[in-house]
Design a protein around this nucleic acid. Structure first.
Length: 506
RNA sequence: CGGGAAGUAGCGCAGUCUGGUUAGCGCACUUGCUUAGGGAGCAAGGGGUCGGAGGUUCGAAUCCUCUCUUCCCGACCA
């Protein structure tokens, strides 16, 4: 493990050195204009584009390939833990929402509603004609409609737990949208479970919270702090909300995935009742948990640099791209050599040969922007020497190595790639966590233009929160890892042991 | 949803203020030749209902009204 870190340390330095010396693949740098840079990473890597509909996006094939990788990893894990996939309707009768007061209040403002079901031609224009008796909400989340089914399915304690997940799209009519981070329609998975006891349901919510933590931090190598949402910032209708708050390269927090213990709130609203072991009729305890395409935004803002995207190997559509440097005279030998390389690679390595007739250099820079970990340039030289000419995306260092050595070390190099990705991100983020012990310090920190997470004592009560408004920050979470020390709440002055994370957020 | 900016070729832009030949430039694209491993050169080409609708005018990318979309700052954001 130490060796790995040493390796990463050395490369971090090379990385910084190179960045100060050379021309970059993107026009705008992170430090110049983070928001513009973010857009350029997306267009540069060909991940997505704005659709013709307000706030909606087209996820392009390369972006969707990343999402598919994420889906596969998570789906396998969910199933391993006993969940099964199902599918519920996109439309939810609007009045169904009204059964849970907090829930409807939380979503009312961002709900898209279908009120008509037919178009008619009028003066050459199509106008909605048949009005629906009951308006249909386009699902912003499916607790109510899935709960309604569960109510029909659960009769006895023997029917529990019900462990469901669905992969779908949801719609939230947001006022301000940004590709991946906040779109009117987005893709996600939503898990919904019903349990016999509070204890079991709480364990389920925490278990899925752990799964998200693992996926975000270990698989995607994104720096995140797991914790609990403050009482006033829970999911509408939840008893407890757990979150992973990820830190982006501009120091802002991104709520990356949440898991909720819903108590009996939803069970009571839709009637998930079952006969218990003692014969009495009881309400189930439910949970829900979700992770969306927003995480792709988090992935971009965690790992990308001024040359574009960088990807952890687990979700990279390709690990290796081979670019033939074709010259007319012996293109056949070069292509044969390229195929030979591909066929020699271990099965775990995703590789493709780009033989499109575009200029090799332009192709190379495209793949730099797409964050392919290893780019191979294969031409006459390599055919003659039996080498591979490899550019490592993270460090942008280019080197020749004997083909056999490349093939036998590719898995190790990919592991090193992941370690470096992980280390440079976690070093960056760890250096941006600041501890303060008073509101004045907090104020000075954010007013000075510094960014990052600030850890401070908080009483846990909702008073004096308006003091955070001026700084445009919020309490992101109460981290699972608590120091246990006693101190004064920076907002109220009350004695407390609670550590909380304060930050600007997306 | 409030304030600001902007929509002209795939991308980036000029032209709009002060209405007037056939709407231009760079990159990209096509063809040819010459070159090639940090983003080629030269030459000849292709590609546009100037976001959309309506109006003013002999004439609208340009002026007016409405509308859609995008970006930035706020508010909002399980």
């Amino acid at each position: 493990m130490e060796n790995v870190l040493d390796f990463a340390s050395v490369y971090c330095k090379q990385l910084d050195k190179r960045r100060s010396m050379t021309r970059h693949a993107l026009k705008t740098s992170r430090s110049e204009d983070f928001a513009t840079w973010y857009q350029e990473v997306i267009t540069g890597a060909d991940l997505a584009e704005n659709a013709n509909v307000r706030g909606c996006m087209v996820i392009k094939p390369y972006g969707y390939a990343i999402w598919e990788r994420m889906q596969r990893i998570l789906d396998d894990k969910f199933k391993e833990l006993g969940h099964t996939n199902a599918y519920f309707p996109l439309f939810i009768p609007a009045d169904l929402f009204e059964r849970e007061a907090e829930h409807v209040a939380g979503f009312a403002k961002e709900m898209a509603i279908v009120t008509h079901h037919r178009l008619e031609q009028k003066d050459g224009k199509l106008v909605p004609a048949g009005e629906l008796e009951t308006p249909l909400a386009v699902r912003p989340t499916s607790e109510m409609i899935i709960g309604e089914s569960m109510a029909r399915w659960a009769k006895s304690y023997r029917d529990l737990p019900i462990l469901l997940n669905q992969w779908c799209n949801v719609v939230r009519w947001e006022m301000r949208t940004r590709l991946f981070l906040r779109t009117a329609e987005f893709l996600w998975q939503e898990g919904h479970t019903a349990h016999e006891t509070e204890d079991e349901a709480r364990k389920e919510a925490l278990q899925m919270h752990e799964v998200y933590k693992w996926f975000i931090c270990d698989v995607l190598k994104i720096f995140g702090i797991p914790g609990k949402k403050p009482e006033y910032d829970k999911f509408a209708g939840a008893v407890d909300t757990f979150t992973v708050e990820a830190m982006m390269q501009d120091g802002k927090a991104l709520q990356a995935a949440t898991s909720h213990y819903l108590g009996q709130n939803f069970a009571k609203a839709v009637g998930i009742k079952f006969q218990g072991r003692d014969g009495s009729l009881q309400y189930a305890h439910t949970t829900s948990w979700g992770l969306s395409t927003r995480i792709i935004g988090g992935l971009i803002m965690s790992h990308s640099d001024d040359d574009g995207l960088n990807l952890p190997s687990a979700v990279a559509p390709y690990h290796v791209v081979i670019i033939p440097m074709i010259k007319n005279e012996n293109s056949r030998e070069i292509m044969e050599y390229c195929h030979k390389i591909k066929s020699m690679l271990p099965g775990s390595i995703r590789c493709f040969i780009d033989a499109k007739e575009y200029s090799a250099q332009n192709k190379k820079w495209d793949y730099v922007r797409k964050g392919i970990p290893f780019i191979l340039e294969i031409g006459n030289k390599e055919v003659d020497t039996g080498d591979a000419c490899i550019t490592k995306r993270l460090t942008m260092e280019k080197q020749n190595m004997p083909l056999n050595e490349f093939v036998s070390s590719i898995e190790k190099m990919l592991a090193d790639h992941d370690d470096l990705l992980h280390k440079s991100n976690s070093d960056f983020c760890n250096s941006r966590i600041t501890q303060v012990s008073s509101y004045d310090e907090l104020y000075a920190f954010f007013k000075s233009g510094k960014t990052g997470f600030v850890k401070a004592k908080w009483s846990g009560c909702a008073s004096n929160l308006e003091k955070l408004d001026e700084l445009a920050i919020s309490i992101r979470c109460i981290p699972t890892e608590q120091s246990g020390t006693i101190g004064k709440c920076i907002l109220t002055g009350a004695n407390t042991t609670i550590d909380a994370i304060f930050a600007k957020s997306y």
